[in-house]
Computed example of a mutant assay.
Amino acid sequence: MTNKEFTQQIDQLENLLFSFALRLTRNRQDAQDLMQETSLRAFRHREKFTMGTNFKSWVSTIMRNTYINRYRKMKSRKHVNQPIEDFSFALESRNAIPNKGEHDMRMNELKLMLNEIGELYSVPFLMFYRGYEYKEIANHLDIPIGTVKSRIFLARQRMKIAIGDRYQN
């Protein structure tokens, strides 16, 4: 399909396509945007149109799919209709610890929990925490990589349980 033929076909269907876009979006501005985006996509992919088939259906399908994709994208985004000042609490760090003493107490508690799970699990866990890769840990401890992964996984599970028990008591 040539550019001229394409333009003629789109011009003939403009009113029909706009009413379809208006029915989908229920908003005049959004319908105009959808029309523009549909025309652009149809033009970009005009070589995929098979001559002798229904051009109106082809363009309508592009419009419907464009609308659905945009709807899904907008649905997944979070919209905020309040002034930014209302969200100043988000800028405050809840993880900030105001004094060193409280930090030291938490670290001591975590060290005790690590000691409770045993050296068999805590050593690979701490090495992984400090940035060592599984292969490096396996070489250092002279054990298989699968064993390293298993011990780190079990250490995480036991730490979660220990931390959970701490907050339930």
Rank of each mutant, 00 (worst) to 15 (best):
N3W: 03
F6L: 12
T7M: 08
T7L: 07
T7Y: 03
Q8L: 08
Q9L: 09
I10A: 04
E14W: 02
L16N: 12
L16I: 14
L17N: 02
L17K: 01
L17I: 04
F18D: 03
S19P: 00
A21S: 09
A21K: 01
A21C: 09
R23F: 05
R23W: 04
L24F: 02
R26N: 15
R28L: 06
D30Y: 02
D30H: 05
A31D: 08
L34V: 04
L34R: 03
L34T: 02
M35S: 07
Q36E: 14
E37M: 10
E37K: 11
E37R: 10
E37L: 11
T38D: 05
S39G: 13
L40R: 14
R41M: 07
R41N: 07
R41W: 01
A42H: 00
R44I: 06
H45D: 08
R46M: 04
R46L: 03
R46W: 01
T50Y: 04
G52N: 06
G52Y: 02
T53G: 04
K56W: 00
K56P: 00
S57M: 11
S57N: 15
S57W: 01
W58F: 03
W58M: 08
S60A: 15
T61P: 01
I62C: 03
M63P: 02
R64M: 10
N65D: 09
T66W: 00
T66P: 01
N69P: 00
N69D: 10
R70L: 09
R70N: 09
Y71F: 08
R72L: 11
K73C: 09
S76E: 15
R77K: 14
R77G: 03
K78M: 11
V80L: 15
V80A: 10
N81S: 11
N81W: 06
N81Y: 10
N81L: 11
Q82Y: 05
E85V: 10
E85N: 08
E85F: 02
F87Y: 07
F87C: 03
S88D: 11
S88C: 05
L91T: 05
L91M: 05
L91W: 00
E92Y: 00
S93K: 07
S93W: 00
N95K: 12
A96H: 13
I97W: 03
N99S: 14
N99D: 15
N99H: 11
N99P: 01
K100T: 13
K100I: 12
G101W: 06
E102C: 07
H103L: 15
H103M: 15
D104G: 05
M107G: 02
E109H: 13
L114K: 02
N115R: 10
N115P: 00
N115C: 09
I117H: 02
G118H: 05
L120D: 15
Y121S: 06
Y121G: 05
S122M: 04
P124W: 01
P124Q: 07
F125R: 06
L126M: 13
F128M: 11
F128N: 14
Y129G: 11
G131S: 08
E133P: 03
E133M: 15
Y134M: 12
K135F: 07
K135W: 05
L141R: 01
D142H: 13
I143E: 04
P144H: 11
